[in-house]
């Protein structure tokens, strides 16, 4: 996941990663990972948060772009069973899709590709 820098607001960090920075730690659903030093005055220090979540933080120096990898706190692809729905998915008309429209319904999400 691409991030704009290493200092993000709480909403920016949540939107990018699905993890919410709270005083008790970095949380997704019921799971909170203690992360002292990650949150100061509403700003998430991504270098600290990434370390606590076991997320590789990779920098392309030529283009000054940062990206975070997958959290490795559980050693599994899923850190939590709580689904985090990204806001970047679009329909065939290019419109963003709001997963809140499916709230309260069971979902089978199927990944496919043209390739």
């Amino acid at each position: 996941m691409i991030i704009s820098g290493t200092q993000l607001s709480v909403p920016e960090f949540l939107a990018a990663t699905g993890w919410e920075a709270k005083p008790e730690g970095l949380c997704r659903g019921e799971l909170c990972v203690p992360a002292p030093g990650a949150l100061t005055n509403g700003v998430v220090d991504v270098t600290v948060a990434a370390k606590k979540l076991g997320m590789p933080l990779v920098h392309d120096a030529s283009h000054n772009v940062w990206a975070l990898g997958v959290a490795t706190t559980t050693g599994r692809a899923l850190a939590s069973a709580k689904a985090f729905f990204p806001s970047s998915l679009i329909d065939a008309m290019g419109r963003a899709f709001d997963f809140n429209s499916l709230r309260g319904r069971r979902i089978i999400m199927v990944a496919w590709a043209s390739w």
């Binding site: 996941m1 691409i2 076991g54 997320m55 590789p56 933080l57 990779v58 392309d60 772009v65 990206a67 975070l68 990898g69 997958v70 959290a71 490795t72």
Partner: peptide
């Protein structure tokens, strides 16, 4: 594998 996700995203 976790780092690969960041590399692919970049």
């Amino acid at each position: 594998q976790a780092r690969a996700a960041a590399c692919f995203a970049l």
